[in-house]
Nucleic acid binder design. Structure first.
Lengths: 176, 176
DNA sequence: CAAATAAGTCAATATGACTGACGCATTTTT
DNA sequence: AAAAATGCGTCAGTCATATTGACTTATTTG
């Protein structure tokens, strides 16, 4: 079996590599999609790294900052669910951000065990600075590819999400 | 199926959230694109992890296996360029794969300093096993989103690549 | 009051990346 | 032919991010 998974000669002559109108995508097309996603995501994530390095932060800090920007007053527990990491992993990152004055926390009023996190002014400034190159890249890509392509891009990415959580995630992304 | 994810009803009448025909995409749209990419990629990469864990391997091993499947007889140096990691980083991973019998190497004939790497039979089997869930996910997404959306997906991802290397990468992905 | 929950922390471990340095075999250049 | 450059392997040390497990404290809930 599998003597050449990515072999060039896997399709009979006469057929092309195009997606059939209704059937399953070809092996070739799937592989291309997978690799494209890999490379595009790699370039996409490479953008903010140099800024983070200046501050001695890593991508974990970036993620926290991003989601805090999007979800002000989120509790630790909810942030853990969102990031899908452990409390201990978050802790180190969060401590650094608190110490650096990028993030603040307030004790919950309804439940005083909870800590509500938020970006400080400098935290928000950092968020803006970090997201700038990514927004720039995505913006250029959207403009270049055109609105129709962008719609397809979003549609496919949405379909790639875990079906179980798709609605939840899309709702979170798409809220006003 | 969850249609109208990216409903346009979120902006006040008069303004639409469509990308302006020629202008810059809106902040909202950019943020959505960024987050969608993040979540979709996260789900996408989660697939093979359980298989890898069985074998005591990580994503680094997966990447090596994938690119070895795609580039049989590649040399160490070329693989390093492709993966953009250091020789030392690759070494540990490669040693494990060689020891496990998933990868073999041959001394080059033209230049005997070079090692040409290839997947063994069990390596190819593992590659197939790892890529199966990803292909499945992408396949379902492509079918669900439809050919037009897939074309847009690819177009945007290609536009997200670093301009400097775009041609090189696309050529590598898209070759026969 | 007892139990459950939210959070913080200590400790140990794993993975995957990095830099720097050095050695060996081989090829290329001078 | 000698010198330099190249391809690869490896030792040693570091770093960032993640993990699990166990324990504490404060607080809420049954």
């Amino acid at each position: 079996m599998t003597d050449a998974f990515f072999s060039t000669a896997e399709e009979p002559a006469g057929k092309t590599s195009q997606t059939p109108a209704i059937g399953r995508p070809t092996e070739e097309e799937l592989r291309q999609g997978i690799e494209l996603l890999f490379f595009a995501y790699r370039d996409f994530t490479a953008d903010p790294d140099s800024i983070l390095e200046e501050l001695g932060f890593g991508r974990a800090h970036h993620r926290v900052i991003h989601f805090l920007g999007r979800n002000p007053e989120i509790t630790i527990g909810d942030l853990l669910v969102l990031l899908r990491i452990t409390k201990q992993s978050l802790n180190r990152v969060l401590r650094a951000l608190l110490a650096g004055g990028f993030v603040g926390q307030r004790t919950g009023t309804r439940d005083r065990r909870q800590r509500h996190l938020y970006l400080t002014e400098s935290g928000a400034a950092l968020e803006a600075r970090l997201s700038m190159p990514q927004k720039d890249r995505v913006s250029k890509a959207f403009v270049e590819a055109g609105p129709n392509a962008v719609a397809g891009f979003k549609k496919v990415l949405a379909a790639l999400l875990d079906p179980q959580e798709r609605d939840r995630v899309l709702k979170a992304i798409n809220r006003p």
